[in-house]
Design a protein around this nucleic acid. Structure first.
Lengths: 205, 205
DNA sequence: GTCTATATGGCGATAGAC
DNA sequence: GTCTATCGCCATATAGAC
């Protein structure tokens, strides 16, 4: 019978945190056990080995991030509002998951089978069809130029993610303080949306 | 007297490669020694410890990447050609240094002192002033809109780097084969430049 | 299911010959 | 400067009591 304290869930939550902070090789089973408030031996009882625990952790984390990002793709309102909302959401998610996102992209390539499973389980066909359909509508109405939905989505995500990932470098390249960097990142929420809209909105005749 | 075989350089080259592939904790001194064709003890002779070797490796790699990226910022020719050339160069560099770039951004935050040293040694003031001056020129001539040089540069780098970093994920999200992904990445060289220019070029009156 | 105690192996680092 | 041999430590994993 399963324990009322839910040890498995506690271990998994601790493992995700520690693996993200230290990487697979840097993580210690003892640290995960301590953080879960459970003995090291129990980790092996629930998950056969460190690698087993890691694979489950990656699976849990990847699903969380991908679902979080996808869930913000709501095709409501005007195209302008839709894009402003998208940019805002991505900035929010990426700021919150900075470390996890880096871990995700670093480790992704080593565990492509897991990525296959996770992406397969997503309702991406409907989501992408929704977005693509939405852009097709706008193109027909003549409000936006002819752009592949994938390109537009990739551009938006890129411009939101990169400055957050690279902020320690950018801070130094442009001689900014931490505070100035925060102001800059916040200012970009508006800038990115403006930049995208300037590119895709057709000028009023 | 220094050895004619240049052991120190051979060790460093091997170390950069192994650290990039395995990370600090995953790297083994034995593997670095093997790859350099030198005994493990000699690693400790030249660099006091694993950490010492790592710091030198990070320094070498970071300088390489940053200089490589900066060296492509030539403010010649028309604004349109300048941007097309920038995008092409970045796509080239990032494709070649994919793994290293990921390593760079993952480890950057843990070694901020090293980043300080490296960025301080760069002639970035002149470079940035050059670029900023160039945009100021174009803005005065009325060819481009009013945009901060930093924003423009960040946007371009972001749109070049992200699809390369995220290609294993994008491939699956959009159900593409490896070949289709390569075609897509190549197509983006033109798309990104077009996208940027559409956003910043003022319409002809 | 959860613990303490222990087995087992591998890694960074050093000693010391050449 | 470069090597072989070895020390000392610590991490994963298991055994076995409760």
């Amino acid at each position: 019978m399963e324990n009322i304290s839910g040890s498995e869930a506690k271990i998994l939550a601790a493992a995700v945190e520690v693996f993200c902070r230290r990487g697979f090789d840097g993580a210690r089973m003892q640290e995960i056990a301590d953080q879960a408030g459970i003995s090291k031996a129990s980790l092996h009882y629930y998950f056969r080995s460190k690698e087993g625990l890691f694979k489950r952790s990656v699976q849990v984390l990847f699903s969380q991030i991908i679902n979080n990002v996808i869930s913000h793709l709501s095709p409501d309102s005007s195209i302008e509002e839709m894009i402003r909302q998208l940019v805002d959401s991505y900035y929010e998610v990426f700021s919150q998951y900075r470390r996890q996102a880096l871990f995700f992209f670093s480790e992704m390539i080593k565990y492509e089978e897991l990525l296959d499973e996770i992406v397969s389980a997503l309702p991406r066909q409907e989501i992408l069809a929704n977005i693509a359909g939405r852009f097709e509508q706008e193109r027909r109405k003549g409000t936006i130029v002819d752009i592949a939905p994938m390109d537009l989505l990739v551009n938006i995500i890129a411009m939101c993610l990169y400055p957050i990932i690279a902020s320690p470098l950018l801070k130094r390249m442009f001689s900014m303080t931490d505070e100035e960097m925060n102001v800059y990142l916040n200012h970009r929420k508006k800038h990115v949306a403006d930049f995208v809209l300037a590119s895709i909105l057709k000028v009023q005749p």
